[in-house]
Design a protein around this nucleic acid. Structure first.
Length: 297
DNA sequence: CGCCAGGCTTAGG
DNA sequence: CCTAAGCATGGC
């Protein structure tokens, strides 16, 4: 079996990353056994199944199934690098956070946690739409229903490892079919139209990354043109998929609750209050959000 | 039954 | 540009 080794940055804690992937929710797009992550990947329409584990300062990635050509091995490596956001130098974030009363205790407590991404933009946006205004447990349940009905999977030792459905498949769904999976009428409509936008080339990760160079407002404005994508959803995707460091889902209920808890407030903070508190987080808003979410357990 | 949940759209200023 | 109201769908 092919095994790849991925060198890790100095600031990295595998258990912290695992804790995010494993935080009490039933995510259907990866599986964790003890300290090993198993996940199916779709990289440029080439499907593979990998297991990931940590050993003495490196990530060991075993290719359980799929193309083992050198070229594809390189693509898997680069995928994992992006998924765990290994290229970001967290030292600058920690230096800033050391002077921030909210972030300092979180950084001490969750040292080495990285932003675990959602590399596929259609998946990131669909997942954000699914999660709008509902509790996370139900959101994961709804995602599982969608994935198990429309996603491809790799069968390995009798266990299916699913991939998120492609725009091609979802674009052909009916609203009523998705309603049977407990989507609201609006969310079903949004996701089907979103899939069609991907197919028609109205939206793509590459194009947004290009247009967004140094201009995250341009990305927000392009994303929010699509029905069902507001500023929260746009910023969520910018954070989890496009890895724009200043992305900040400021309306997020989880963020509000985390701040309320950290600051021991009686009520959730207002937008103005959050803007004030986050003054020093420039270009690290997305990481500040990751660490605040982590504090919710 | 009521309130909350990783919001969005539309109508009306 | 800003605010309020209406909207779905469950979990607890």
């Amino acid at each position: 079996m092919t095994t790849l080794k991925i060198k890790l940055p100095e600031i990295f804690n595998y258990q912290e990353c695992l804790s995010f992937l494993h935080r009490g929710f039933d995510d259907c797009l990866h599986q964790i056994n003890k300290n090993t992550i198993i996940k199916a990947l779709n990289i440029e329409n080439n499907i593979s199944l990998v297991s990931i584990t940590y050993n003495q300062g490196i990530l060991q990635v075993s290719l359980l199934w799929g193309d083992s050509s050198p070229n594809h091995q390189a693509l898997i490596k680069s995928y994992i690098n992006r998924w765990f956001d290994l290229q970001t130098d967290l030292k600058a974030f920690y230096d800033m956070g050391a002077r921030d009363p909210i972030l300092k205790p979180l950084i001490d407590k969750y040292w080495g946690l990285r932003l675990i991404g959602i590399e596929d933009l259609f998946e990131a946006l669909s997942w954000a739409i699914i999660g709008q205004q509902i509790n996370l447990g139900f959101a994961y349940k709804t995602k599982r229903a969608l994935v198990e009905k429309y996603g491809k999977y790799v069968d390995y030792n009798g266990v299916p490892y699913y991939l998120f459905p492609t725009p091609e498949i979802i674009s052909n769904c009916t609203v009523d079919a998705l309603k049977k999976l407990q989507f609201s009428r609006n969310k079903a409509t949004y996701i089907i139209a979103l899939a069609q936008s991907f197919i028609q080339g109205v939206i793509s990760k590459e194009q947004l990354l290009a247009s967004g160079k140094g201009n995250s407002e341009e990305v927000v404005s392009q994303l929010t043109k699509l029905k069902g994508i507001g500023t929260w959803t746009a910023n969520y995707a910018m954070m989890k998929c496009l890895k724009i460091p200043s992305a900040f889902p400021i309306q997020d209920v989880g963020l509000h609750n985390a701040l309320k808890q950290q600051l021991d407030l009686d009520q959730k903070p207002s937008t103005d209050k959050i803007l004030e508190l986050s003054q020093g987080w420039k270009n690290w808003e997305s990481y500040a959000t990751v660490y605040l979410w982590r504090s919710l357990v």
